[in-house]
């Protein structure tokens, strides 16, 4: 279905994937104009389909009622996408701006390579969460799996639970905040002093995600910066 409402009549549009195709859904969402009045969408019967609500470039809200598959809300640029369920690999991958809120768990590579926006995961995220993040803010209320924040370049990554092995391996300038235990740190990732600027960033993200934990209960990790600068002593290795 593709319900067309009269202009100026705002209401939630239900899109039932039992009755229409995924391609139709994405084509509809991707063709919305920036001044659309159809600003609220609910997707029914997602049944774990891949690439749900990807590439939206207008500030609408999309609610997915059920579990989603891979790359859900990928390349999001401005929309607020809420998933009432779990998501597969690569939720919000390459997000540019907007909000993606997963009410359940996320599989691997959540928020991969994303440039901006906010990704909130209420449950756990598995391996490689925030891999190569380039400016996104990620808040995970549960645990994250191994190799999270691998080669993370910029942005802020808040982990309220525990982190798996090799957190922040080959890290660039992303900030990592962990409340729970870290199984192990990756190469070139180290514990840092929490600066006032860090505290402000963290407090802001906790507030946005509706988390009441104190800033002091988190530990800040960052790059030791020994890997990514050219060092003349290593010239023989290049």
């Amino acid at each position: 279905m593709s319900a067309v409402l009269p202009k100026n009549m705002e209401s939630t549009v239900n899109f039932d994937l039992a009755a229409a195709s995924l391609r139709e859904l994405n084509a509809t969402l991707q063709s919305l104009s920036p001044d659309t009045n159809q600003t609220a969408w609910t997707i029914l019967n997602p049944r774990g389909e891949h690439a749900l609500a990807v590439g939206i470039t207008v500030p609408v809200s999309v609610t997915i009622n059920g579990h989603a598959g891979y790359y859900c809300a990928g390349m999001n640029d401005g929309a607020a996408v809420t998933i009432n369920g779990n998501v597969g690999t690569g939720v919000a991958e390459n997000m540019m701006s907007g909000l993606v809120h997963v009410k359940g768990d996320a599989s691997q590579s959540a928020g991969a390579t994303a440039h901006g926006g906010l990704l909130i995961i209420d449950g756990n995220a598995s391996a490689r969460c925030g891999i190569s993040m380039k400016g996104i803010d990620i808040v995970v209320k549960g645990n994250v799996g191994h190799m999270s924040a691998f080669m993370a370049q910029s942005g802020n990554f808040v982990i309220c639970g525990d982190a798996g092995d090799a957190l922040g391996d080959s890290l660039y300038e992303a900030r990592i905040f962990v409340k729970g235990k870290v199984a192990s740190l990756g190469a070139d990732c180290e514990k840092k002093e929490m600066t006032e600027e860090d505290k402000t960033i963290l407090a802001n993200l906790l507030q946005k995600a509706g988390i009441e934990d104190s800033v002091e209960s988190f530990t800040r990790y960052g790059s030791a910066r020994t890997l990514y600068h050219f060092h003349v002593d290593n010239v023989g290795a290049y």
Binding site: R47, G48, E49, H50, G66, H67, G69, Y70, N86, G88, G104, D105
Partner: peptide, 16 residues
């Protein structure tokens, strides 16, 4: 993939 589980009876209430 979860898609392959989506047709199982009572999957909505399953622990995933």
């Amino acid at each position: 993939e979860y898609r392959a589980l989506a047709g199982l009876p009572g999957i909505e209430a399953a622990r995933l």
